[in-house]
Lab assay of single mutants.
Amino acid sequence: MAAAAAAGAGPEMVRGQVFDVGPRYTNLSYIGEGAYGMVCSAYDNVNKVRVAIKKISPFEHQTYCQRTLREIKILLRFRHENIIGINDIIRAPTIEQMKDVYIVQDLMETDLYKLLKTQHLSNDHICYFLYQILRGLKYIHSANVLHRDLKPSNLLLNTTCDLKICDFGLARVADPDHDHTGFLTEYVATRWYRAPEIMLNSKGYTKSIDIWSVGCILAEMLSNRPIFPGKHYLDQLNHILGILGSPSQEDLNCIINLKARNYLLSLPHKNKVPWNRLFPNADSKALDLLDKMLTFNPHKRIEVEQALAHPYLEQYYDPSDEPIAEAPFKFDMELDDLPKEKLKELIFEETARFQPGYRS
Rank of each mutant, 00 (worst) to 15 (best):
G34I: 05
E71K: 04
P280H: 00
L146N: 10
M38E: 08
A286W: 12
D336K: 07
P311E: 11
D106L: 15
M221K: 01
D88A: 11
D336T: 04
K330D: 14
G34W: 00
K270Q: 11
D124S: 09
N27L: 06
L146A: 05
A174T: 01
G204A: 08
I56V: 05
K270P: 09
T159R: 06
Y358A: 10
H147Q: 00
V304K: 08
C65Y: 04
Q249H: 01
I255A: 13
R50N: 14
T159C: 04
K231Y: 09
E334Q: 10
G169L: 06
E33Q: 13
F168Y: 02
P280V: 08
E71Q: 06
I211N: 00
G32P: 05
K164D: 10
Q66K: 00
T118R: 08
D210E: 03
H310D: 13
R77Y: 11
N257P: 11
N276F: 13
I256K: 08
N45G: 09
L308M: 01
L200I: 04
I126L: 05
I347T: 10
L150T: 13
E326S: 14
A42E: 04
S29F: 07
I240K: 04
L267A: 11
Y131G: 15
A282G: 15
F228N: 09
A189F: 03
H299M: 08
T94W: 11
R67V: 10
R277V: 14
E33K: 01
E81A: 11
D149A: 00
E220D: 01
G169Y: 09
L112K: 09
K272C: 07
A2C: 15
A9L: 12
K270T: 12
N262S: 07
L157S: 07
E314Y: 15
P247R: 04
F19L: 00
K151I: 06
I140P: 05
N238I: 00
D251W: 05
S29V: 11
R15K: 02
L289M: 03
P280R: 08
H180T: 08
T94N: 03
L218A: 04
E334N: 02
N144Y: 00
E186W: 07
A7R: 05
V51Y: 13
A195H: 08
D288R: 10
V39Q: 03
L184F: 05
I89R: 10
Y317D: 12
K114P: 04
P58H: 01
Q236N: 06
R194P: 02
K272V: 10
E12L: 04
E305W: 14
E326T: 14
E303C: 10
S142K: 14
E96K: 02
V145A: 12
L234Q: 01
D318A: 02
T351P: 06
W192A: 02
D111E: 02
S57E: 11
K270M: 01
Y30G: 13
L184M: 00
Q97W: 14
G169V: 01
L264A: 12
F228D: 09
S29H: 14
A195E: 01
I347N: 02
K55Q: 06
D235Y: 00
V214T: 09
E305S: 14
H61Y: 07
K272I: 00
I256P: 14
D175N: 03
E303P: 15
C216W: 05
L346T: 07
F348Y: 02
K48C: 08
F348C: 10
I217R: 02
F129A: 12
S213N: 01
H180G: 06
I302F: 00
C65L: 05
A325L: 11
N281P: 15
I74Y: 08
Y43G: 14
I165M: 09
I31W: 08
D179Y: 00
L116S: 11
L200C: 09
L28R: 08
L241I: 07
Y43N: 00
G245L: 02
V104E: 05
D100Q: 14
T110L: 06
P339C: 11
R148A: 02
G357E: 08
K330E: 05
V21I: 03
E12A: 09
N27R: 08
R24I: 13
Y64C: 06
V145M: 02
I95Y: 11
I227L: 05
E349F: 15
K203W: 04
Y233G: 03
T68R: 05
L308E: 12
P311D: 13
Y317S: 10
F296M: 10
H310Y: 06
R225L: 01
E220Y: 06
D318W: 14
G204V: 00
D149Q: 02
S41I: 14
E341Y: 15
F168D: 08
Q236S: 06
R15Y: 11
I217F: 00
C161K: 05
L218V: 09
T160I: 05
A286D: 02
L170W: 06
S57W: 05
L157W: 10
G245P: 02
F168W: 03
L28G: 10
K259G: 08
L343D: 05
K285L: 06
M108V: 10
A189V: 10
Y317R: 15
R77Q: 03
Y30N: 01
Y316T: 14
P176R: 03
K300N: 00
T63M: 10
K151M: 01
L170D: 05
Y25I: 10
E96M: 15
R79S: 01
K292L: 11
F19Q: 07
E326P: 14
D332T: 08
H61M: 13
Y25M: 12
P11N: 07
D124V: 02
L294A: 02
W212K: 03
F168K: 05
P23M: 14
Y193H: 01
Y233F: 00
Y193C: 03
G37K: 03
L137G: 04
L265E: 09
I324Y: 14
A325N: 14
F329N: 13
Y131Q: 15
K270H: 13
V214W: 03
Q17W: 15
L335V: 14
N201S: 06
R79I: 00
C166N: 07
G242F: 11
S320V: 10
G85W: 15
L338C: 11
V104T: 13
A189S: 01
A143C: 09
Q306Y: 15
I256Q: 05
K48V: 11
I83L: 08
I95T: 11
F279G: 06
L290C: 11
L28D: 14
I31C: 15
N27G: 07
L335A: 08
Q62N: 10
H147D: 07
T118D: 11
S142I: 14
Y30M: 09
E186Y: 08
E345D: 00
Y128M: 04
E345Y: 15
N87R: 14
L308S: 12
D175Q: 04
C40D: 15
L155W: 08
L244D: 04
K207M: 00
P247N: 09
K54E: 03
M221Y: 04
Q66F: 10
D179E: 02
H178P: 04
E350C: 15
F129H: 08
F331Q: 14
G10W: 00
S41T: 05
V39L: 01
H61D: 06
L121Y: 06
I217K: 03
A325I: 14
V49Y: 13
K342W: 14
P229I: 04
P356G: 11
I347V: 10
N123G: 08
F279N: 13
V14N: 13
N253F: 12
Y113S: 11
V39W: 04
E33M: 15
G16C: 11
I86V: 15
A3T: 04
V104F: 02
D20K: 13
L69V: 08
T26D: 11
D167N: 00
K231Q: 06
R148Q: 00
A325V: 09
L258M: 01
N276M: 14
I90G: 15
F168P: 08
K292Q: 09
V214F: 03
A35M: 04
K117Q: 06
G10F: 08
Q315I: 13
L244W: 04
P196Q: 02
L290T: 05
Q249I: 11
P298T: 00
L69H: 15
I198T: 09
D179Q: 07
D179M: 06
R172K: 04
S122T: 14
F59R: 12
R191T: 03
I95A: 13
N87Q: 14
V214H: 01
S153W: 03
P268C: 09
T181R: 07
T68V: 07
P229F: 05
N144F: 09
F331Y: 00
P339D: 05
H61E: 08
R301W: 06
R15A: 08
Y263C: 03
V14W: 08
I86F: 00
D251P: 06
C254T: 10
E350D: 00
I74K: 05
I31L: 09
K117H: 11
G34K: 06
N257V: 09
I302P: 09
